[in-house]
Design a protein around this nucleic acid. Sequence first.
DNA 1: CCGTAACCGAGACGGTACGTCTGGTCTTTGA
DNA 2: TCAAAGACCAGACGTACCGTCTCGGTTACGG
Lengths: 201, 201, 201, 201
Amino acid sequence: MAETRTPDSRRRSERSRRAIYEAALALVTEVGYTRTTIEGIAARAGVGKQTIYRWWPSKAAVLLEAFLDLAAQTSEGGTELPDTGDLAADLRLVLRATVDELNDPAHEGPSRALAAAGVVDAEVGAQFVEKLMEPQIEAYIRRLRSAEAVGQMRAGTNARIAVELFIGPLTHRWLLRTLPLTHEYADTLVEYALHGLAPRA
Amino acid sequence: MAETRTPDSRRRSERSRRAIYEAALALVTEVGYTRTTIEGIAARAGVGKQTIYRWWPSKAAVLLEAFLDLAAQTSEGGTELPDTGDLAADLRLVLRATVDELNDPAHEGPSRALAAAGVVDAEVGAQFVEKLMEPQIEAYIRRLRSAEAVGQMRAGTNARIAVELFIGPLTHRWLLRTLPLTHEYADTLVEYALHGLAPRA
Amino acid sequence: MAETRTPDSRRRSERSRRAIYEAALALVTEVGYTRTTIEGIAARAGVGKQTIYRWWPSKAAVLLEAFLDLAAQTSEGGTELPDTGDLAADLRLVLRATVDELNDPAHEGPSRALAAAGVVDAEVGAQFVEKLMEPQIEAYIRRLRSAEAVGQMRAGTNARIAVELFIGPLTHRWLLRTLPLTHEYADTLVEYALHGLAPRA
Amino acid sequence: MAETRTPDSRRRSERSRRAIYEAALALVTEVGYTRTTIEGIAARAGVGKQTIYRWWPSKAAVLLEAFLDLAAQTSEGGTELPDTGDLAADLRLVLRATVDELNDPAHEGPSRALAAAGVVDAEVGAQFVEKLMEPQIEAYIRRLRSAEAVGQMRAGTNARIAVELFIGPLTHRWLLRTLPLTHEYADTLVEYALHGLAPRA
DNA sequence: CCGTAACCGAGACGGTACGTCTGGTCTTTGA
DNA sequence: TCAAAGACCAGACGTACCGTCTCGGTTACGG
């Protein structure tokens, strides 16, 4: 399955790589993940199949890299949350942006495909988390620590779990398509997470 | 894909159905979702392929039904949350139970397989939500309304979103395997969700 | 390589078999043996590749059977040499006919292909000899024995070797394309073989 | 297919050529003609693929040259038949030697491979005949003419056809593996060819 | 006798075909 | 008279080679 004899990456064709990224993303968007085949990607990219098998171990790996490449282009390194001093406002802004991104049909196909692949295949999942989720989560953590420092968050809060209070419900709703993702939803989420469901004492 | 001529369900072989359920679940657990094939299920169940195609439209559908059957056996209709009057305690109990269930290796294979299939295939996803998630969510909603009635929750809370505050983070962590699911995690989640991340006024 | 689980020949599709024979012969004639591929045969016959791999172990085997089928149609069992009482005349007649057949461009492609395959692959060669050469050789042997009985051949002659004296040179010339095969050549061969190269005592 | 820009043969690496010959012959002997690949030859010879493609147009061409080289080493130019004055004895000697050579397993693989390639590919066949068969045939012709001069052969005999009377059956038996090649067979062949199958008048 | 043109080993490339596996459909056959 | 068995068409899988190409490195011509 995987290549045993490792190829010489210096001689790799940049042209082919880019063509493969584009073909992979296009196909996943057009026909879905399962009907996207390596053969199809190769044909569309004008590339020999072996060129794919030489550099990637699986369809999921191709797609992950293609997606990372796309993400890198889109958000030019900007993995930092705004910090206006008003935690609630900042979170609303970010979550609304996330909602918009998740609703963007261009990203939907590849994102769902990767998420699903990661759910089933631990290897892919680990890559997915490390490359895509982790940077985002850490940006949240930094913002929450900053809030904690200025007394907008309870001291001693487990930042990771705190982050999940925002991201978890959003992801849940998106993955399972239970109800639509709206800006209002994002706002409510921020409200509930910050001030709790219990009545104020 | 779907059968045109609908078969006569009265003449259906109960024996075959049970054998298919068992074969499907066993295979998913043993070799994973993607390597589980309809052919393999048929062979293991000692059943003709057509017997599967006659009654189910896809591999995911077979598995969904098999899983529902399993779930029905396990939790004999008990889709009600405890109500001791102490919301926090009740939630901790339930979430801890969910954590245990998600950590149970016997359920992991089929569950992940179904979740992944649902993420990618809207049809399967809808079924998954309707048959598996919705009853659970509604049980939560009933419990939260009861809490609201006795003043343990802020009035006017959107119950669906409130539920997601508990379920979302849990699911997120399980699906993406970011960090282990523990009882302490469940407790912290209840704490944060009920009382919020912001300092009490 | 070969099928392990032997298929049920009663359920075999006659339609597919015929289509495969025709496609194979057509392709060999049109593009030659090496450029004839199993995929090509399947495509041309409108048949799945597996249907070929299910019933034949190799490209050569397909072609051999196709060729035998063709030969069976052409020469309806008539594997008997003429016996007018004049051995020399009868042999001239038969060898001239063989010359014509070998010169027939329609048979050339498949024949050469099979011969070559048989030269290299002992299995195919054995089949080739058994099914195509042997009946012909035995007809020769019967004719030579008949000639021996009436004193037109030396008594005690090794009939097999005698046959090769006629067939060998012809095949040699055809296979290696050293010089053209003509009726005169056939006649000379009969002359030399019957009466020898040495001067009559 | 063929090189357009003709390479400078003065700068050719003798080392590589020899290594390629050896690798080619070894592979053909070990795994057979069809499973011998240019990549395999290159790898075994420790040579770049291009070095083969630069100097030879095809796998068959490589093998032909390798075989010629081998033949040149073995029979140091000795393409002359013995002439003791006794034609029958001389022919028996030569045909027995040929039988031994054909039965030599070391030569079998490459010989069959080349013969088969020549049967199917006219270009290779022509080379095969010109380089390997023709010198041998002409040696036979010279010996037969000498015999004719001393009255051991009928005058006016077509020498080419006469030669085929000896070589043809031998080749036939070897190529088609009908029956084993023995010294007795060679002797009988000489007997029959010289004195004919018909009874002496 | 030095620069450079061509060979060399190596191997990535776009392709084709391999032989296998599975998906769905259709047909046969035995209980 | 079904349902198992499994043959069928279709096509993707991952591998092996094809013949071309490009890359450095190393000879050995020829100015």
